[in-house]
Computed example of a mutant assay.
Amino acid sequence: MANWDGRKNLAPIGHPVRLHLEYDYSAKAPAPTWQDYFNAWLATDEPAKTTGLVIGRWWHDSPEDNDIELVLEGIVNARERLPLLKALFVGDFTYEEWEISWIIQGDYAAVLAAYPQLEYLAIRGGSNLSFGAIQHQQLKGLVIQTGGLPVQVVRDVAAANLPALEHLELWLGNDEYGGNSTVDDLQPILSGERFPSLINLGLRDCEYVDTLAQAVAKAPILERIKVLDLSLGNLSDAGAEVLFTSEAIRKLEFLDLHHHYMSDGMRDCWATIELKSDVSGQETADEDGDEEYRYIAVSE
């Protein structure tokens, strides 16, 4: 992957390009806006060869609420300059740059409509994220990473018409940071009514994963998928035991449960069966008197 620094033309690379703003506090000249930076890149020969676009920091000091709409509008308007675009990732920065809960996202309906050839879409951040009715014939992978995924987004995804989708990954988060979905909101996915091509299902970073495990263990979708990812959540023995005793779970090719609160005994049980699994990252619950607190991996 190549970074485009706005100062020179890149030789044709034929692979994803990462675009991001860097702020130089010592610079005397005004820093370019995202629009100026993006338009300068569009004026090069690179967009015509770009198959994947990774969007990092799109502001200098602090983002305005509408900044992301300008970013998405620019991507939509550039569709004729990006004829080979197959993959898009918006929000590529780590917590050192910006906490995931601080990321202001936008409406992706126009992006999906503008790029019917898009195969992979990844989004980091859930605040203000929206899709509306989702319909796309070519999308194979959808990843939404948040510390709290709003229920309307969960419902929109669960109701989506995505016949080619093979990989679905939702970071559900907790209610303190906007993750207000329940197992009921995921039922259209678990029932197998949607996504006839689905192979990999990730319902990650989930605060209600014990309850989710009970629904997943007997869900019809297990007859279709090969990989189930319930990692990054606060899974305890209660949820793990339900998964462990499920015959449908044991038919999977891989089960990812890393970052969990299983006891030593429950964790070690997974090594006694043929199912390949990841049960690394054992956490210890915090206790305060009779109260026990188990935390998901990503929230703020």
Rank of each mutant, 00 (worst) to 15 (best):
A238M: 10
D268T: 07
I134D: 07
R294Y: 14
I199D: 15
S231W: 07
A240R: 03
A48W: 01
Q35I: 14
D264G: 04
T284I: 15
H60I: 07
E99G: 07
A48E: 13
E69G: 00
A40R: 14
F38H: 08
Y108L: 11
L172M: 11
F93Y: 11
L82G: 06
G52S: 10
A164Q: 11
P150G: 06
D229R: 02
F93D: 06
D61L: 13
L72H: 10
V17R: 02
I134V: 15
P47W: 06
Y95A: 14
L129M: 07
E169P: 00
L230R: 02
N234V: 03
L212Q: 03
A40S: 15
S231L: 03
L170P: 01
V76R: 05
A160Q: 05
L10S: 09
T284K: 11
A43E: 13
S101M: 11
Y23T: 10
N3I: 11
M262Q: 07
G141K: 08
G192P: 11
R224Q: 15
H60S: 11
R7W: 08
V143P: 00
L201I: 02
V76Y: 07
F93Q: 02
G192Q: 05
T50N: 11
L228S: 06
N3E: 15
H20I: 00
E22W: 06
E300W: 10
R194A: 14
L165T: 01
L53F: 11
Y261V: 07
T33Q: 14
L121Y: 05
A113G: 02
L149Q: 01
P30T: 02
G56W: 03
Q145H: 03
V54H: 03
W171E: 08
L10Q: 12
A285E: 13
N234I: 02
K49P: 00
H260A: 05
D65E: 12
Q117I: 06
R194D: 08
S246F: 05
